[in-house]
């Protein structure tokens, strides 16, 4: 166990995985929040009012976000890091297959892909929970819509706060910008409703 942990520490240090994973986490969790907010608003203005439809939509959106995140970032990271390793091989005049360097970069690609897949999916699934409660009869649909939107906006606020903490300046500005993007999405969706009704 100690050996595995030591190897993982080396992989993280060599591949600079923490920084890239942190970026992926914030970008994709935000992506997941805004996507599910858009989907929920779309359902709301379209008058889709059955919990089952919204649960199916929430799960489908989560699966799509996870699949897109995993495939996209795994292939991108492998390509990007593979290119870097090839460049390094030229300078070292040797192949780096099966070396710690290649293992570290493959590890970072896989971890980045998993984070890229899970962060938006978890956010989207959490925003679907109120509709599951509505399906179980614990909540009425009007409240489920409000709760789902509130959950999504809370995620955007938390992500903004987290970014502010990372930047070590203007926490409120990052929080406001992230929440603002969520509110703008909701507002534009509502305007869409007006446009198609007139």
């Amino acid at each position: 166990m100690g050996y595995i942990l030591e190897r993982v520490r080396q992989y993280i240090e060599i591949s600079n995985a923490l920084e890239i994973v942190r970026r992926y986490f914030v970008i994709n969790a935000f992506d997941g929040a805004v996507t599910i907010l858009g989907a929920v608003m779309g359902a709301y203005i379209s008058g889709i009012n059955t919990p089952k439809a919204l649960i199916n939509m929430g799960f489908s959106v989560s699966i799509a976000l996870a699949m897109s995140g995993f495939t996209g970032s795994l292939l991108m990271e492998l390509a990007e890091r593979g290119g870097e390793v090839k460049e390094l091989e030229k300078r070292l005049f040797r192949k780096l297959d099966n070396s710690l360097i290649t293992e570290a970069h493959n590890f970072a690609s896989l971890v980045a892909a998993l984070v890229d897949a899970l962060s938006p999916a978890v956010v989207a699934l959490t925003a679907t929970v109120p509709f599951i409660l509505a399906y179980m009869g614990i909540m009425v649909m009007a409240d489920a819509f409000k709760a789902s939107i509130l959950i999504t906006l809370t995620f955007t606020a938390l992500l903004g706060f987290y970014l502010g903490r990372i930047s070590k300046t203007r926490v409120w500005l990052y929080t406001a910008a992230m929440v603002g993007a969520g509110l703008l999405t909701a507002a534009l969706s509502l305007m869409l409703e007006g446009a198609f009704h007139s």
Binding site: Q10, E13, I14, S15, N16, L88, R91, L92, L100, I101, A104
Partner: peptide, 11 residues
């Protein structure tokens, strides 16, 4: 020996 820069010397 030549090593990749990303490999920590201590390791």
């Amino acid at each position: 020996v030549m090593k990749p820069r990303e490999l920590p010397l201590i390791d």
